[in-house]
Every structure is written in C-alpha cells, then in structure tokens.
C-alpha cells in the first residue's frame, strides 16, 4: 500500500528539486572554481552553430564560446538547445551562458540579461523568386511559416494580427521550417538573411530570395539575471574581441561579410 504513496512523494521531491530557487550570484571566479563553463548553443543554425562531419559543434557562436572558455582558462562544455529552449536552459541552471543567435529584445530581458551585441543579422521574409511579395499585404491568402519562438515569429505574429487572411504556421525548429518551404508546404517563411536556403531550389524550381526586412537584430550573450560581475566581464571580453579584430575575423570566416556596426547599450 505504501508503494504508490512513496512514488508520489519521490515525484514531488524531484519536482521541487527541479525548480529554480535561491539562485546565488555567479561571478567569473565561480566559473573558474567550478573548472568548466556550460554554454548553450543551437546546432541547427548554420553558419552560427551546426555539427561538422565529425559530429563536433562548429560555427561562429561555437568559436566565440570557445574564446570565452579560453579567456577564463576553463574547458567549455556545450549544451545543445533549441530556440525556445534557450531561456529555460538558463533559468533551470543547465547552462551558464547562451551563445546562440540570441537576439536582444526588451521582452527577453525581463527574464535574462544580455551582453552588448557581438554580431547582427536582419530577420527577413524569404520566398521563391517567382512569387510577387512586396509587403505584408501580399501575404494574405498565402501559407507563411516561421520557427516558433524566434524573432521572425514575434514579428510575423503581429503582422498576421494586422493582416487577417495570412495562413500562419509555426514549426518547432529551423530545419522543419526550411523543409516545409522546400517541399512547398508553405509559400513564404521568416528567417535570417543567411543560410542554406539560398543554395536550394523551391518545389517549383525557383530560387529563393529576400522579399523584405522584418526586423534588424543584434545578438547578445545571454545569462541569468542578478550576476553583475559576470555580465561586466562578458562585456569586457566582447570589447576586447571587437577592438582586436577577432569578431570581424569570425564574421568573415563564417559569414563572409564584415561584422558591421555593433552599438553597445
């Protein structure tokens, strides 16, 4: 008779343990003391994060993460997350930092802290060349897709509200959305102005092109709130990497374009 009750108790205890409370401030020294740094990356967003032929993480975000570890003098343990999993990964203390094309927004900053930007990328609307799309009005009656939780989702959700008649579909990750685009399940998609989709052809044989900009974005390194020392240290590191040309080198290496303006805040 006691066994189900005991199971319930164990479950409850596990739930309580899993909840994040009494988080203590985390300084760079604490990470050094811990002997490793846990960094969340997304390996489905080339050229920022992906897996190479040896199944090792690679990309601009990944190399930046390695530079963070190098500056601290500790090995980096990469934790793979999805786009909607980035904030929970921080809040549940599964990672110390998120370096994963994490666009700086005021809404997100209510839950986590952002460093100064280390890169930028516009979110755009993509569609096959043959489709005439100049603005949101032209999307009415079309199937438009985006990755749930990404910036394009936020912008498109607003757009759909203001332009009734857009058939809007949200996918759980980037590759699913791209696959839906390639197989013709959607007519247009929101996404970054980069990526392999430019190398592919649509189901009608057309190439893809950027139709209009949804929002310019800046990527920051995300961390839990209440860690002023860590935030300041990360900003200091980014300041040095920007000024010694490292960020520009990374941008050229992975994106084949200069890093551009990085306004601090």
């Amino acid at each position: 008779m006691t066994s189900p009750r005991r199971t319930l108790f164990a479950l409850g205890a596990a739930l309580l343990l899993a909840l994040p409370f009494h988080a203590q401030a985390q300084a760079p020294e604490d990470i050094v003391k811990a002997g490793k740094i846990l960094i969340a990356i997304d390996t489905t967003v080339p050229p920022y994060g992906s897996l190479d032929t040896q199944m090792q993480p690679t990309g601009m975000d990944v190399e930046l993460g390695q530079l963070v570890g190098k500056a601290l003098g500790v090995p980096v343990e990469f934790v793979t997350v999805t786009s909607p999993g980035r904030i929970p990964a921080l809040l549940t203390k599964r990672v110390d930092l998120v370096i994963s094309i994490f666009s700086i927004t005021a809404e997100r900053a209510l839950q986590v802290d952002f460093s100064n930007p280390y890169g930028g990328q516009s979110t755009v609307l993509l569609a096959p060349k043959g489709r005439k799309i100049a603005g949101p009005k032209d999307l009415v009656g079309l199937k438009v897709g985006a990755t749930r939780g990404a910036i394009e989702d936020v912008v498109l959700t607003e757009m759909v509200k203001n332009n009734p008649g857009i058939n809007y579909l949200r996918f759980d990750d980037g590759p699913s959305c791209v696959q839906a685009m390639l197989s013709g399940q959607i007519d247009a998609m929101g996404g970054g102005d980069y990526g392999e989709i430019y190398l592919r052809k649509s189901s009608t044989g057309d190439e893809f092109e950027q139709k209009f900009v949804l929002r310019p974005n800046y990527f920051g390194i995300g961390m839990r709130k209440g860690n002023p020392a860590l935030l300041h240290w990360v900003n200091t590191l980014l300041f040095t990497l920007k000024n010694d040309g490292t960020l520009d080198r990374l941008s050229m290496k992975y994106r084949n374009k200069p890093i551009g303006d990085l306004p601090p805040f």
Binding site: P84, E107, G149, D153, T157
Partner: peptide, 14 residues
C-alpha cells in the same frame, strides 16, 4: 503548440 506560443510571448515557461 498553443503552450509553446504562449511561452514565447509571456516567457512564463514553468
């Protein structure tokens, strides 16, 4: 899906 949609707007995941 609805839950995920609400999460990305409110960030109230738990």
């Amino acid at each position: 899906a609805v839950a995920n949609n609400i999460m990305i707007v409110t960030f109230r995941n738990f």
